[in-house]
Design a protein around this nucleic acid. Structure first.
Lengths: 213, 213
DNA sequence: TAGATTGTTAATCGATTAACAATC
DNA sequence: TAGATTGTTAATCGATTAACAATC
């Protein structure tokens, strides 16, 4: 089953629902949840919860609600998180290093965390072969080979702004389909490749708007 | 002049326009720009650029376009970036440490970067007094005092999920009006306080949706 | 059965785009 | 003046909310 043209606004909320379901499943041993409860904890109106889920199938029972574990599994499946998703990270500076350690720690401690960092890349020869936790740093030239060897599907980009487009171009030609970009630049990618931007300085500037002048 | 009820979608684009104008001003010595050109570089339709700007005043000339430096200054003013905005960071783990170093480096190298980190906080006594670059780490208990002393207006939150709400509550009672949250939790704040979420794992999970199943 | 809650359709709301008179 | 581009209004598009029949 492929669902065409699900809007980005809908896709954004699915991981939020998933997080709520995982919390409830872990903490509360509760088995059923209404769109009302789920929406409350996710910060989404109940009608919107139902409408979002209805794009993908009928997961609830009238008069009863949704089964927590069943819906959780369905959302995992929809998000391709019912398998390990293998991620590379390009640019092992301070930020890349911190994200690598964070991701590894989460992956070890929380088995519902399925986006796993499995390779690090950097262009500085001094770093090649170095380990971050148990992960080796490779030259960016090794990217294409590693994509094939390890089955990488996603990359996190933490290189300086001026190199971001270049490394993304290389990742895309190697077959990468999703990019989490921390560099403060607008990346240009072909259709079918998806970019999420995590741009610290844009967020800080946006927040500054709400300060009193 | 206060502009009531400017939508969040509009505010989000202002820093993008500002970035384009700063690039053009620095690199190209170009003095005029049309909404067409600005929109192209910002990834926004020209009519929307004009409409966004028109919320705040009339900055262009018919038949001519916008003056780059003038519009840049006006956007800085609108975003409260015509002065130093003082930011604290709570939670100096690996991620907090990396963000602190990144922000300090940007602040030194780029004088258009006006959101300055000026205080670090952590609850681990072992870290108190330690320096990150030239910035000292204080106990979280010192927060209220430092807000007053240094004029902090914003905080970056990089504590573990279970402590995030608590430290934000304390920041808010100390008078903080804007929060950049890296913890994977939905924060509850009173009206008038603004939160931007930078939730790495939600973004990775969202991107996983677009991978082939 | 009676009460509750889903899935879905219709109504509303808000944001983007198109169009154009004003004017530099 | 003629050409270009703004600021703004009207039209369109899409997302959210309200309402309710179906049904557990």
């Amino acid at each position: 089953m492929r669902w065409n043209k699900i809007s980005d606004a809908v896709v954004r909320r699915l991981p939020i629902y998933l997080r709520v379901l995982e919390e409830v499943s872990r903490e509360e041993r509760k088995n059923l949840m209404s769109s009302q409860e789920l929406g409350e904890r996710a910060g989404v109106a109940p009608a919107l919860v139902r409408k979002d889920l209805a794009w993908f199938g009928e997961f609830g029972k009238q008069g009863v609600g949704y089964q927590v574990d069943y819906l959780k599994n369905e959302l995992c499946r929809i998000l391709n998180l019912d398998r390990e998703v293998r991620v590379g990270l390009i640019g092992v500076g301070a930020l890349g290093h911190a994200l690598a350690r964070y991701n590894r720690a989460r992956a070890l401690g929380d088995e519902t965390f399925r986006t796993h960092l499995v390779a690090l890349f950097d262009n500085d020869p001094a770093k090649w072969g170095e380990l971050v936790d148990d992960l080796e740093i490779w030259p960016v030239d090794a990217l294409a080979g590693k994509v094939a060897e390890l089955g990488l599907e996603m990359v996190i980009v933490t290189v300086p702004a001026q190199y971001a487009q270049e490394v993304v171009d290389r990742a895309v030609s190697a077959g990468i389909k999703a990019v989490l970009n921390f560099a403060p630049v607008k990346l240009i990618v072909p259709a079918g490749v998806h970019v999420a931007n995590a741009d610290l300085s844009l967020e800080l500037q946006r927040l500054a708007y709400y300060l009193k002048p």
